[in-house]
């Protein structure tokens, strides 16, 4: 109700981009300008963070998972902070694929940021229906199949907990889409390499590693779960070693397959750690909750970090951990 004029001078800052550092990375047939991506479920429509900076500075945006029908999501509390991390149980609240295609995709394309569409089905058939709905859509550079969501035909266990359901869900998408498909896997499995191989065999271009880890926290005074949904997904720095391990294992088994790495990345060194483990690109989620500028800080900080160590290309560091 009151308004003030800008009292302080602001000045443009030059984009710090040391010469001779190549940030471009390949995700299969797709080349991105840099390896820093917004992780699914952590960037809303894109407009929210564009209030702070031009989102086309990012390598790509992976949008919040879309379902066939609109979803209202779960009751609150949906979030609980835990040591160096947080639990969430949002319930895939989203406007549904059709409304997103009409209202949000055009904005992202106009913004000029490469867009990766995340889709989530309750059933194998729903994954197929989502893929068919995307067949004639122009603009997105890839699809991320969120198969770490509950499968209603398998007692709500996630598709990505078994090789056969992983393969069926991924195949339902790759059979009808010509876009590159990345299967987003759960780290909560005994053998993630076997799951990644099943996704690859079903036609996935690559995999996204890792989704949140299932977790739970209890309010000991009230003797109640801290989340309305009782359990939720753990994210943040607490899970970063899990992500590094999963990326490393899968990259060792399938060195040519593109991997989008994610899990607790906050600093430039964290980005490099996942690349050394074998990630082709790195998605950032919870860090954006902590700091809306987090992804931009990584894009701007990466060239200097690499140049200071004599590296000329981020892609050259992929999988370059010695062991």
């Amino acid at each position: 109700m009151t308004s003030g004029s800008q009292s302080q001078q602001v000045v443009d800052v030059a984009e710090a981009r040391p010469a001779g550092v190549d940030l471009s990375v390949d995700l299969g047939p797709v080349t991105l300008a840099n390896p820093v991506l917004a992780a699914s479920g952590c960037f809303a429509s894109g407009r929210e963070i564009d209030r702070f900076f031009d989102v086309d500075r990012l390598g790509a945006v992976i949008v919040k998972s879309l379902t066939l029908e609109p979803r209202g999501g779960l009751p609150t509390p949906r979030m609980a902070e835990t040591p160096s991390g947080m639990l969430n149980a949002i319930g895939l609240q989203n406007p549904g694929l059709d409304r997103w295609l009409a209202e949000d995709l055009p904005w992202l394309l106009d913004a000029g940021v490469p867009t990766i569409v995340s889709i989530a089905g309750n059933t194998v058939d729903e994954f197929g229906a989502l893929a068919r709905a995307l067949r004639r859509v122009r603009g997105p550079v890839a699809v991320e199949a969120n198969i770490s969501c509950p499968n209603v035909e398998d007692r709500d266990r996630v598709f990505a907990c078994r090789q056969d359901t992983t393969g069926e869900a991924v195949r339902a998408v790759t059979d009808v889409l010509h876009l590159p498909v990345f299967a987003k896997l759960s780290p909560d499995v005994p053998d993630i390499v076997a799951i990644a191989e099943a996704a690859r065999a079903a036609g996935a271009t690559g995999v996204s590693l890792v989704n949140t880890l299932p977790g739970m926290a209890i309010d000991v005074e009230r003797r109640r779960p801290r989340l309305a949904a009782v359990t939720g997904g753990l994210s943040g720095p607490a899970i970063r070693p899990v992500a590094v391990r999963a990326v490393h294992q899968v990259h060792r088994a399938m060195p040519l397959m593109p991997i989008i790495g994610m899990g607790g990345v906050r600093t430039v060194a964290d980005v490099v750690e996942l690349v050394l483990a074998g990630a082709s690109a790195v998605a950032v989620g919870t860090a954006t909750f902590v700091n809306p500028m987090a992804t931009l800080d990584l894009v701007e900080g990466l060239p200097g970090w690499l140049a200071a160590r004599g590296h000329t290309s981020v892609a050259d560091l992929r999988g370059a951990v010695s062991s």
């Binding site: 209030r51 702070f52 999501g73 609150t76 509390p77 949906r78 979030m79 969430n88 909750f289 809306p292």
Partner: peptide, 25 residues
Amino acid sequence: ESMACGVGVCWSCVVPYRRDDGVAN
């Protein structure tokens, strides 16, 4: 409401609200 990001991207802090087209979080 319990809030992770404060800037609209985490969808933690929802409130059920009657809009003209129905109740939305």
